[in-house]
Design a protein around this nucleic acid. Structure first.
Lengths: 119, 119
DNA sequence: GACGTACTTTCCGGGTTGGTTAATTTCCTT
DNA sequence: AAGGAAATTAACCAACCCGGAAAGTACGTC
């Protein structure tokens, strides 16, 4: 079941990477086109090292690829992990909407259980 | 800009809640229908307190609602935050696919910048 | 009111995250 | 070779997450 395992790990990393408004803002900026770390850092009230680490998180999650040109290490989006997120989300949503308002039935089941097997 | 701010906060919480395979498994189980904490804990190799805390994370993220019946506190899904995630993801995806393979152009721009303003 | 069941809360230990400043690396320019 | 710009790494700190174990709460039953 190695395939499932790696997929799960990837989703963990991807969701964790997205769970930061700073990082989501970086991604939104990159959606406008590639950028260097200095360019990315410019709108933020954070030091360069902080941004560099955020970029590294995005990179390890596979959401960002990096190039090389002299001292520059430009960043570029990779949409693949986002497609995984989208797939998981849509799959869950489909199932969730189907399980509608069954709380009452579940409580009734708890009750019945107790009457069948009273202590 | 209060609306945007709260939305961002919610996304932080939601993504963070989803960034755990244990919690995603709990949600998958709940998609089959409501369940008590003991029922949720059964397939896991974790103590009840751990599961209880995971459920609380999901609850604070708005992904789970809870009922009350005697000592039982049955859990039920709430799909609303997932729709927010879906919306953000789809919106980003749309933009990302549009920004295709512009790394080369960006590097050329860095080069031109330097030639225009050499130090 | 005592007991059992279903949780929840508190406290603790170890590992990770998010930021800082200062030092280092890498590459271009002169 | 010297200097500077881009970016990373190192060292450090406060804050948080994730487990478990133990104590506490809430409710129903005897």
């Amino acid at each position: 079941m190695a395939a499932t395992t790696t997929e799960v790990v990837r989703l963990d990393e991807t969701f964790a990477a997205l769970a930061s408004s700073t990082r989501r803002a970086l991604l939104a900026r990159l959606a406008q086109g590639p950028a260097t770390v200095n360019e990315l850092a410019e709108p933020f009230d954070l030091g360069l090292p902080a941004i560099s680490k955020h970029v590294k998180v995005l990179e390890r999650a596979g959401l960002v690829r990096r190039g090389r040109h002299a001292q520059f290490r430009p960043c570029e989006l990779d949409p693949a992990p986002l497609r995984q997120v989208s797939a998981w989300t849509d799959r869950q949503r489909a199932t969730w909407e189907a399980s509608f308002d069954r709380m009452d039935r579940h409580i009734a089941a708890l009750q019945a259980n107790k009457e069948r097997d009273p202590r």
